[in-house]
């Protein structure tokens, strides 16, 4: 564990807590894409299949349970909770996210480190996570302005993988044979997809107005 990875995990944890806070306290999911949340639930479900077979550390297992629990409960809230469900703008959140799942699965079957069930699904989760934010970014453009909590959620979610990139650079120089091209490229693509969001998000800080 290094400071970059810890900062990345804490940033990721903060992003799900901000979203849960928004949905649970103000009972609203306005501006939040259910499709992105569903993709993230699939990402965690396919990435953490090893939670019962391989034990890394208490921290690792605890964080996996937190990410699994929070992503599925957010989907539950947005789909079935009577008050929250009403604030979900279904008409705007129309990105065909299932069209993202199949190509990622095919790509994972073609490009992976080992051809085993767990490894292919793990690789699938990497590819899917890289594009999982797309429905949310499209929704953001459609709804124009967004509230602070949603903006902070996206900012933290985008930032965590960027911190992971620093972690991979650090591990590459400190651990022999630490080379995982698939993880690195997927993580880079994921972070680059946030580039324009970061641009407008920082403009907000400079201009002191809502995220346009």
């Amino acid at each position: 564990m290094n400071i970059f990875r810890l900062a990345g995990d804490m940033t990721h944890l903060a992003s799900v807590l901000v979203l849960l806070l928004k949905i649970h306290t103000i009972k609203s999911c306005a501006g939040v894409s259910l499709r992105t949340q569903e993709l993230y639930a699939i990402v965690f479900a396919t990435r953490y299949l090893d939670i019962f077979t391989s034990f890394v550390s208490v921290y690792n297992t605890f964080m996996k349970l937190v990410f699994l629990g929070s992503s599925f409960s957010i989907v539950w809230y947005m789909r079935y909770h009577k008050a929250v469900h009403r604030t979900y703008d279904r008409e705007q959140d129309t990105f065909r996210h299932w069209f993202l799942v199949l190509p990622c699965l095919v790509l994972a079957l073609l490009i992976h480190e080992k051809f085993t069930f767990l490894e292919v699904l793990w690789t699938f989760s990497l590819y899917l996570e890289a594009v999982a934010i797309l429905p949310q970014l499209v929704l953001l453009q459609r709804t124009r302005n967004i509230d602070n909590l949603t903006g902070q959620y996206i900012f933290l979610l985008g930032g965590y993988r960027g911190l992971y990139i620093l972690n991979w650079i650090y591990r590459y120089f400190t651990e022999p044979h630490f080379v995982h091209w698939i993880t690195w490229i997927a993580g880079l693509v994921q972070t680059l997809l946030y580039a324009d969001f970061f641009y407008y998000y920082f403009l907000r800080f400079i201009g002191g107005r809502g995220v346009e």
Binding site: D9, S54, V56
Partner: peptide, 10 residues
């Protein structure tokens, strides 16, 4: 016995 053989990152 939980054998560590997978990934150590989240």
């Amino acid at each position: 016995i939980w054998v560590y053989e997978f990934k150590d990152e989240l």
